[in-house]
Amino acid sequence: MDANFWIIQAFNGVSYGALLFLLASGLSLIFGVMRIVNLAHGSFFLLGGYVALTVIWTTGSWLLAIPVAALVVAVVGLLMERVFLRPLGFDPLRQVLLTVGFAYLFQQAALDIWGGDNLDIVPPAVLKDSTVVGGFYFPRYRMFMIGMAVAIGLMLWLVMEKTRMGAMIRATVDDAEMARGVGIDTSRVSMFIFALGAFLAALGGVIGGAFLGVYPGLDFAILPIAFAVVIIGGMGSLTGAAVGSLIVGLADNFGKALFPEVSYFTLYAPMVLILALKPTGLFGRE
């Protein structure tokens, strides 16, 4: 185990964390604003990948596939929130089961439309090579993933900190009842956040499709990892989602490389400990 191992594994971990950030930031915001444990979030990720494939097959444009897939899935999320989740009111258990129901429906729909094969999203040739820095080979696609996550993260941060909508979201995360009291339309905030969460997850699905693949079952494979990120970072916090993604991305990579037999255990056990000791996570507020 030389320096090469550590640097490459760290780079892989960070880039995987970047992908997780796209997936988990939305999940975290949804939880923070609506207190919903959204078990359909992995489905948004998977649907993003599938819709992107359809766009690529019909137009041949990978670049076009990214926004189209994200927007289509955002609309799906928006409808799901408006038509089904909103009328349910606040009841964690029923909300969870409802999102599971949708996860199963999406799974079946994806199987009917796109079939059961393992598919791959092929990025443009420019991104397929590696760049050599100081004697190390860094795959360009992973660099692109990191860049994308940083850009999205910055944009989210600007929206949250500098806009009126962002202020309304933060207020709702802190105290939804109080926010309603001062005249914030929390129902509209919820709608926006759920659609945004679906958008981000689908974006992750398109980008992750190139190295995770797109296949039935990916939805439930990736979902618990997203929850690990959200819980470690703290629900409802963007900074938390970023730090949590990095921790989980690195823990997953080094865990698999160093202790393959207990690698998932090393991922979920810290999640349990944090929940038991500080349920609000590293960056969540009381």
């Binding site: 444990v37 618990p224 998932y264 979920y268 349990v272 929940l275």
Partner: peptide
Amino acid sequence: LMITLALGMCVWG
């Protein structure tokens, strides 16, 4: 809900 989910995932892992 979340902590039991995490505990279940530990066993799965």
